[in-house]
Write a protein that binds this DNA or RNA. Sequence first.
DNA 1: CATGAATGAGGGTTCATTCAT
DNA 2: AATGAATGAACCCTCATTCAT
Lengths: 213, 213, 213, 213
Amino acid sequence: MVVEATIAPSILSDDDSSKRRQIMDGAHRVFMEQGFDAASMNEIARVAGVSKGTLYVYFPDKSRLFEAIVEQDTLEQGKLAFNFDPAIPADKTLRDFGRAYIELLCRPGSGSSVRTVIGIAERMPELGRRFYENVIEHTFNTFADYLKARVKAGELVIDDCTLASPQFLMMCQATLFQPYIFQAKPAPSTAQIERVVESATKIFLKVYGAKAK
Amino acid sequence: MVVEATIAPSILSDDDSSKRRQIMDGAHRVFMEQGFDAASMNEIARVAGVSKGTLYVYFPDKSRLFEAIVEQDTLEQGKLAFNFDPAIPADKTLRDFGRAYIELLCRPGSGSSVRTVIGIAERMPELGRRFYENVIEHTFNTFADYLKARVKAGELVIDDCTLASPQFLMMCQATLFQPYIFQAKPAPSTAQIERVVESATKIFLKVYGAKAK
Amino acid sequence: MVVEATIAPSILSDDDSSKRRQIMDGAHRVFMEQGFDAASMNEIARVAGVSKGTLYVYFPDKSRLFEAIVEQDTLEQGKLAFNFDPAIPADKTLRDFGRAYIELLCRPGSGSSVRTVIGIAERMPELGRRFYENVIEHTFNTFADYLKARVKAGELVIDDCTLASPQFLMMCQATLFQPYIFQAKPAPSTAQIERVVESATKIFLKVYGAKAK
Amino acid sequence: MVVEATIAPSILSDDDSSKRRQIMDGAHRVFMEQGFDAASMNEIARVAGVSKGTLYVYFPDKSRLFEAIVEQDTLEQGKLAFNFDPAIPADKTLRDFGRAYIELLCRPGSGSSVRTVIGIAERMPELGRRFYENVIEHTFNTFADYLKARVKAGELVIDDCTLASPQFLMMCQATLFQPYIFQAKPAPSTAQIERVVESATKIFLKVYGAKAK
DNA sequence: CATGAATGAGGGTTCATTCAT
DNA sequence: AATGAATGAACCCTCATTCAT
């Protein structure tokens, strides 16, 4: 029916307010490109396609808008939904997870997010803390839980899974993430990722694998 | 002659200029505490103990002063003078170097430096690149060179030292550096460092040690 | 009928409009507390309990709303209904009227009114003029009329009642009103008022009393 | 000597800084014309003939600039240097002083000052208090002191000089000051002043004069 | 060379007013 | 009639930079 089509949009527009979303989208782009201080409310309004005054209808001030953006990024990046299927052999899981982790870390936009948060962490430590806990540490913990399960299953022999988890993930980063975050090299290619993750996986299994005994 | 008295000061001031040094010291403190954008030339002048005008005698503008500061930090931090003595057993060297590395990374001031550079890397990628190459990568390379020497000496068996080097150093960071840089936790204690480095060292030797064969 | 229920409210609302009254009440409070410039239409709407848009349904703009408030105050304060009973001896009337006058002048809210009008008089002289004429001068005139009647009755001997009236009322203010209007002292106590009015009354009668001759 | 002529200006320029004076002059005009809120720093800068930034070199913010202006006015108006010569008969002194008082009160600029201070007194009571004490009350006290001396000299018989002083001065205001301050009438003419002061003087002497007995 | 007063563009924020619903 | 989201001009204030001394 024709009428329905007309009504639809307003029904679809989530009540999280399309304007609010619109502002956050614009603010996200500007904040990520420029950082907190260099981003101007003027430009955010322009990019978001709203007037400056409207910004203040939805957010009390620049800091709070920024925090909302970072919080959103924190939640989104903290999701990293990986299916740790116990039926799949550990080596395959390590490889797949390692690759997914690095790809997440180095996908476009992710770097800006990390850079922006680190850049402001000195003056807004709360933001840094929450980002670390909900994104970085959360991933470490999720993976550590998987490892514990494998240990219990007798597939792995690990004394301290809470340490083993970041050991593996940090090895996966080797050569790849740091140049990316410092803008020294572009995001790594799939081949590069494969190679580094493969090496990390082998080391991990050699050290923590059950048959390694 | 009377005239000499007048000229004297400019003669005495070494031309690498104590004033220049003075400015850089002040600017360093302010930039590191506040980041590039939030730092004001006014406060830099105040902290440096010179007039605002003098700043512009030695540096054409704020960006160039900042670049000089970062460059200086880059050079200083790139120095990490570690004595890789071939006479010392590899395991001890790994332990000592790992500890020294983390202590350097997490010593007060170092965090600010890294945060400031990462925070500005999006807009001043050149600064990020040089910092990465001269500090991060340089350390990886220096250590890789050591590893190559140990391989040649038959003490270690490593296929790709350029990869093994960051693998070890990233493992040493596990749990320690990231919370620190995000301001989520204070700098790690000596005991924490010892424990993580010890684990990394053991893994490294188990995987790459010659006797491991 | 069901429909009636829906219409009812609009029928009930008297057309001098309870909404209009509601707005004026809110606006009065805000304008008197903050002054014309510092009062915001936003807060007026909030205090009045109506939406911002509704303000503009009843008043074309901020100035006109303000003028309406001041006009209302002018009319209300101009009323000062005092019963000049010819049967009562002049000295009692003077004392009672003087006290009532000062109490009116210094009652809470009255000060704000005067301050607000004086504060804006430079830019809105018309408002000041009407306030002066309808409140201040009107009181002078009312009292002057009483004096004239007493003169005619032979109870007082006054050459110029139009001058004698403010002479008495200004003497009553002595020490009391000015510190109050400048916010230098709180509203005067009953005892203070009594004392000052008593003195003014005595002086007035000594000078203008018939028996004084 | 020629040289002296060159140096002179810098010596003459009071160290109260000509720029500061320049700013205060401009700010005075704008604040008095518009009131605190309506005055904009932009216009003050324009009228003062300096840049907006310069304003903030001399005054930390708008409030402080305003306070400086009011304070200056307070001091200047508080001066009312009147020579209470004991050799001159009281009646002449009363007449002269009364006239001088009203002329001061109603001279151009004085009204704006009073209006501005009263207008802001609700929100800046300290300003109001100091203005009242240093200008209004100070005049009352100065005159009260004179009266006390006349009482001691046996020329006047006054029970409470602290009350008698404002009684006289308020009577002098009758009909003159209030319409002026409300912008209802222009400043009174000399003739009007003379007439009202004359009447007040006569009343005062009739009541408080020694020979009145 | 060194100073610091002066600048003016641009920062974040508020607010009277409008208008689609 | 009533709403409140949206606007954009104008607000106060900061700051990198310049220049006369």
